[in-house]
Design a protein around this nucleic acid. Structure first.
Length: 508
DNA sequence: TTCCGACAGTGGGGTCGCAAT
DNA sequence: ATTGCGACCCCACTATCGGAA
């Protein structure tokens, strides 16, 4: 099959807003693909590469060679070149990758170049990724979508699952099982604004667990072999020896557990997320790091214990098996209660000990791998500040032509100026985007055709955020975590905006 | 007919490792 | 030594479609 066929399909998918039409376009192409190119086609049209990453991003695609006129590149040819690009390493590798990228793009027409540029840049922008592709694979292969979904949660990689369905049908999908050593898509949580709302959403008796601000870890053990995977199914076994040892210390030797690792201080309190993330990301001299920045693991779910798969069992049964297999000092604190007061006490205790919040869990839901199911509801405290908009950036994609990303500043009473604390583009409705684009242009103090438009610091905006963290990037040495817009405060003059001291008092 | 779950899109801050400067 | 880049960790929120109620 030719790359141009995929590029045309992608354009058709982007042109139709209806999901069912997108599915039709994708299924139509998939039903024509040769078996040996099925995985490539599923990957490209869902925004993935069979190689996963190849070390090429938008920055290395800034200048491209002229396109050719006649399309002739096959999927196999493109895939081979991407593999060669990925294989480059060591001194001279950047130049070698650049030359191979140029060679690849020289062989493509304008439409193919545009498609591959978006694919490699990680922004396909055709309104279809995994979710739509699952349906398209089902349609093209004549297999129920539920079978595709089930196989995907167990395999975690749609190109492989899609190719299996297209080539081998439902029998091929049935051969996917929970396999120790191969990660499963982790279950995700929905969120609620506060504890009563979370309990209401749960609808019945539930369990509360601490929510730790660390790294999600799916731990597999078969005999004396242990593998640890992150939320995106990357293998971090080598970076977390404490966890490997903890898993080997358990008496069950055929298991898959879900949990969180955090770096802890000598007094047992959690380190800030930045410290945990740095520790887990670091691959050099792990033995030294574990002395200076030790990790602790807290398990909260069991997908398999003593060789028995538990994904489909209710939470309460999985947790009972977890308690059997894991000593209490490796378990996340948990309270089963229907009493709102007890729940509130548990929540405030978790916060007092420095944790991020709690997760409320239904006792009856199965482990919904890969889904953001209503069985888990997270609750975190929310802070707000009134800040001043210092500048705005032009948006991309569906926000093209709109001033989107806000630069936020707190008042500095010493100088009478403002100190930037970060940016946000979240929480804006389309109406608000339109209004702010128009209004900001009247406040601009610089050219409005630059990417960043500086503004007179006159508009106050109420911002919600999760916390203040240390920042090497901003002048105040602090930045807001997960900042989002709540509302504009045209009634409030910038002289009454919150001060940098107020922000500093929130930095732990 | 209305409601709501799932999905895609738009990006945020931080850290590490690696190659190039 | 410093810088640029890619990859990955954490993530919130809105708009939209289409099946469920």
């Amino acid at each position: 099959m030719l790359l141009i066929d995929l590029a045309r399909t992608s354009a058709a998918v982007a042109a139709d807003s209806a999901r069912l039409a997108k599915i039709r376009h994708l299924a139509d192409l998939l039903s024509r693909v040769e078996p040996h190119e099925a995985e490539i086609a599923v990957a490209y049209l869902s925004g993935e590469l069979p190689q996963r990453q190849i070390g090429v991003g938008y920055a290395s695609l800034r200048e491209l060679p002229d396109p050719r006129q006649i399309a002739s590149a096959t999927l196999t040819e493109v895939d081979d070149l991407l593999s060669r690009i990925k294989a480059q390493a060591g001194p001279g590798s950047q130049a070698a990758r650049k030359e191979l990228v140029a060679q690849l793009f020289r062989s493509l027409t304008r439409q193919e170049q545009s498609f591959l540029l978006r694919l490699l840049g990680g922004e396909l922008r055709q309104g279809a990724l995994n979710g739509v592709m699952i349906e398209a694979v089902a349609k093209a292969s004549g297999v129920p979508a539920a079978e595709v979904r089930r196989a995907l949660t167990l395999r975690g990689w749609l190109p492989a699952v899609g190719a299996a369905a297209l080539v081998g049908g439902v029998e091929a999908l049935r051969s996917f099982h929970l396999e120790v050593g191969r990660p499963v898509a982790p279950m995700l949580a929905q969120s609620a604004p506060n504890l009563p709302a979370a309990l209401l959403k749960l609808g019945g008796p539930g369990a509360l667990e601490w929510k730790l601000d660390g790294i999600r870890v799916q731990t597999h053990r078969s005999g004396d072999r242990v593998r640890v995977f992150t939320r995106t199914l990357d293998d971090i076994t080598a970076q977390v020896p404490e966890l490997v040892e903890a898993a080997l210390g358990l008496h069950a030797d055929d298991l898959v557990l879900d949990g969180e690792v955090i770096a802890v201080r000598p007094d047992g309190r959690p380190e800030p997320f930045q410290v945990t993330a740095g520790r887990v990301a670091s691959k050099l001299d792990v033995e030294r790091l574990r002395e200076t920045t030790p990790l602790r693991v807290f398990f909260f779910d069991a997908l398999r214990v003593h060789g028995k798969d538990m994904l489909d069992l209710p939470d309460a049964e999985r947790h009972a098996a977890l308690e059997q297999a894991v000593p209490s000092d490796l378990l996340i604190p948990r309270l089963v209660t229907a009493d709102p007061d007890e729940a509130a006490t548990f929540y405030s205790d978790a916060l007092r000990r420095g944790h991020e919040g709690i997760v409320a869990k239904s006792l009856t839901t199965p482990y919904a791998a890969g889904r953001r199911g209503a069985g888990w509801i997270k609750v975190k405290p929310r802070h707000t500040l009134d800040l001043v908009v210092l500048a705005a950036e032009w948006g991309h994609g569906r926000r093209q032509g709109k001033l989107s990303n806000l630069h936020l500043g707190a008042r500095d009473p010493e100088t009478g100026g403002f100190v930037m604390l970060g940016k946000t583009f979240k929480g804006l409705t389309d109406d608000l985007l339109n209004w702010q684009t128009e209004h900001f242009l009247t406040l601009a103090t610089g050219p409005s055709d630059e990417w960043v438009v500086p503004l007179r610091p006159e508009l106050v905006v109420e911002i919600a955020f999760d916390g203040v963290q240390r920042s090497p990037r901003y002048p105040g040495g602090m930045a807001l975590r997960f900042a989002r817009v709540l509302r504009y405060r045209p009634d409030k003059p910038p002289t009454e905006a919150d001060t940098i001291e107020t922000v500093r008092s929130l930095l732990l």
